[in-house]
Amino acid sequence: MNDGEAPRMPERRVLLKAGGTVLMSAWLLGGCSHSQGVDDPLRGPDRPTPHARFLTDAERRTLRALVDRLIPAGLEPGAAAAHAEDAIDALLAAFLTDPPLIYAGGPYSDRAGAARNDLARFIPLDEYETLAWRLVIEGSQGRPEREFNGPVIGLQAIYREGLAHLDARAAELATGVLPAALGEILRERLADTPLSDVLDLVNALTGTETFADLPALLRNVIVFDDSDAKVRALVDVAFLDTLDGTYGAPEYGGNRDLVGWTSTEWPGDVQPRGWTAEQVSHRDPPGPFDALLPPPYGGGDAPRGSGAAAPLVIPAGESLTAAILDAQGSLAALRRRLDVAARVRPEWIWRAHHG
């Protein structure tokens, strides 16, 4: 089984359509005034903000192998093609740059006619924002001024410890130590993958492999092991960061060559060019799967009783958005909610022929 054939996490198109507006629009906000050659607190400095690195080369390699499993390549490019690991590393190193790599400026990039890319010029943080984001990224580190609500483990520690644990789990596989929940992982998470496929790959290991050296199937076995609290803690954080790095603005370090946008047919930021009157007034040309959607989602209007379209079951977008929010950042919780959402319920049934 190669990377392209490996089973996927929850369908990225489902997540993107349900919550993509939140993921990809926050960075579009920015100030409206600008003086060329002068730093503007609303638009960032008059120079692009550099990216820094926090992780070692070995850690970045492990992280790249992880994001490749969280959003694997298939019919479209995945997180590895988008270099989502670069965006994650840039976030971990946010305070190694000045200003910190947190809030991209605005209002425009240079992708739609603007003279310069304001999004590449990050906005300085005030004192409150600096403390809040240092807590998120660096943690409290035992400092009294940061532990007013108790100790906080930052993203840097979560990633550093989690990536080391992935490599440790890879070394364990060579000794024949497999997850206790392997049968459940193969049955429910890896589409009934035969145990023999796993054992054949394990028997071929030499004991020198890191997580990045493992074949995709064995990396999936580790990533999907919800019984491992350390793996779960890392994946819960890394999955959302991988979504951002794959589908967010490239100024944050990911979405290389805009593959996250082109693969989902999202046009990206179009200001200041904007849309023509015709584009605003008429629907987009139909795509290959649009006929499967009901009319409010851009599908065709099948005549009543024509039999031209079969009944279609779709989860309501509001339900999917609620599932993402209710999961509170936990990928395991999100998967459980999506499993429930996939079951047929009357309020989710749409009959395209209105019969």
Rank of each mutant, 00 (worst) to 15 (best):
P215N: 12
A216L: 08
N220I: 00
V221T: 13
V221M: 04
I222V: 13
V223H: 03
V223E: 02
F224R: 09
D225E: 08
D225F: 09
D226F: 05
S227I: 01
S227D: 14
S227Q: 09
D228E: 09
D228L: 08
D228V: 06
A229H: 13
K230G: 10
V231K: 00
V231W: 05
R232Y: 00
R232D: 12
R232C: 03
L234H: 13
D236V: 07
D236M: 14
D236H: 13
L240A: 10
L240R: 10
T242G: 02
L243H: 08
D244M: 13
G245R: 10
T246E: 00
T246I: 14
Y247S: 01
G248N: 08
P250S: 10
P250V: 00
P250Q: 06
Y252I: 15
G254T: 10
R256D: 05
D257F: 01
G260N: 04
T262G: 05
S263P: 15
E265F: 14
P267M: 01
P267R: 09
G268K: 02
G268R: 04
G268Q: 01
V270G: 00
Q271H: 09
R273I: 01
R273Q: 15
R273G: 08
W275N: 04
A277N: 13
A277F: 12
E278P: 03
Q279K: 06
H282I: 00
R283C: 07
R283A: 14
D284A: 05
D284K: 09
P285Y: 07
P285I: 03
P286H: 15
F289Q: 05
F289S: 03
F289E: 12
D290P: 01
A291V: 11
L293E: 01
P294C: 10
P295S: 12
P296R: 02
P296Y: 09
P296N: 01
P296V: 13
Y297K: 01
Y297N: 07
G298P: 12
G299R: 03
G300C: 06
D301W: 14
D301F: 11
A302L: 11
R304E: 03
G305H: 07
S306G: 15
G307T: 15
A308C: 08
A309K: 04
A309N: 01
P311N: 03
L312M: 15
V313A: 09
V313P: 02
V313F: 15
I314A: 08
I314R: 15
P315Q: 11
G317V: 10
S319P: 02
L320F: 03
A323N: 07
I324V: 11
I324F: 06
I324L: 10
D326G: 00
A327Q: 00
Q328I: 02
